[in-house]
Design a protein around this nucleic acid. Sequence first.
DNA 1: TCTAAAAAGTCTTTTAAAGAAACTAAAAAA
DNA 2: TTTTTTAGTTTCTTTAAAAGACTTTTTAGA
Lengths: 140, 140
Amino acid sequence: MILRDVFYGLSSFSQFQKNLDIARNVLSDRLDKLIENGILELQPVRPGVARYRYHLTDAGRDLFPLVVGLMQWGDKWVFGSEGAPVVLVDREQGAPIQPVALQARNGRYLQPRDVEFEPGPSAAPELVAWYQRRQSNAQD
Amino acid sequence: MILRDVFYGLSSFSQFQKNLDIARNVLSDRLDKLIENGILELQPVRPGVARYRYHLTDAGRDLFPLVVGLMQWGDKWVFGSEGAPVVLVDREQGAPIQPVALQARNGRYLQPRDVEFEPGPSAAPELVAWYQRRQSNAQD
DNA sequence: TCTAAAAAGTCTTTTAAAGAAACTAAAAAA
DNA sequence: TTTTTTAGTTTCTTTAAAAGACTTTTTAGA
C-alpha cells in the first residue's frame, strides 16, 4: 500500500499516514525497511533543512509492473463487474494500458503450462540434480 | 512462497512443508486462507478417497505474472551479477521469456512517468474530486 | 517575532501471529 | 497385518505487529 501510494505521487510521512490509516510506528518501521532494502530513499525537501521526502530508487521503480499487476488482479477478481476504482492510462495516447502478462521472446502470450522452470546460472547443485531426475522420469 | 511452489508443480501439504521449512500450523493456516480467498482449491486425489491436493483456481493462475515478476525482480536486484537460481523458458522455443513490464495498447514499454492514474468506473466520489482538484491546480 | 499547528517520529503497552513440539486419524506401503 | 507416511490439529512459547500516548522539530499565520 505504501508503494502504491508512492507510485500515486505521495512522498511524505503524513501523506502516507492519512491515506493508509495505519499506526505511525508501523508506518515508520515499514518505511525504514523499504529504505534498508533499497526500494525507497530519503531526499531532503530542500538543501540544508532536516526534512525529507521518500522517493523511489531504481530498484523501487522496477516494482512498478508488480504493483500495477496486483491492482489489475484486484480489479478483475475482487471488484469484478463493479469495475475498477482506478485505471492506468498511457499519457501519450490517453488509453488504458495493457494487462500485465507473460510474453515469449517472439511476443506470444504465455500461460503457466506454456513455460518451464529450469535451473539458472546460480542454481544450487541439489536443484540441478532434482531437475535432471525429473527430466529422466516421466512420472511425478 | 506457497504460490511459487504451486507454480513449480507442487500440490500436497507435505511437499510444501519440506520445501518451505515453515511450521505445520502456519502452513495449514495459509493454505486455508488461500482457499478462502479463491486462489487455491482442494481436489480429491482420486474419487471416493478423503485425500486432497491443492490446485490453482482461475484466479490463482492469474497471479502467475506477479509471481514471475517478483522472481525476476529478485534475480535483478538481489542476485544481480551472480545470476538467477531459476530461469523460466518458453516450452515452444526453449528460450527465456521476456521480463514482466508495462505496455501501452500499441506495444510501447511504459515507465512510471509515462502513465497516469485516473478514477475508474467504481471510483469513490472523493477520489474523483481529488483528481479534478489536481487537474485544475498545477502545483501539488 | 511569537504562537499554534503540522510533521515526523519514538516509547510503552496490548494483541495477534509465528514457531516448536506433541498428538491424532486416515491412507499407503511393506 | 503392521508400520510409515500424510495431513493435519492442539497446546504452549516466543516474536512481531498494532494502538495509542508522548516528544521534538518545522513551518505557516497573526
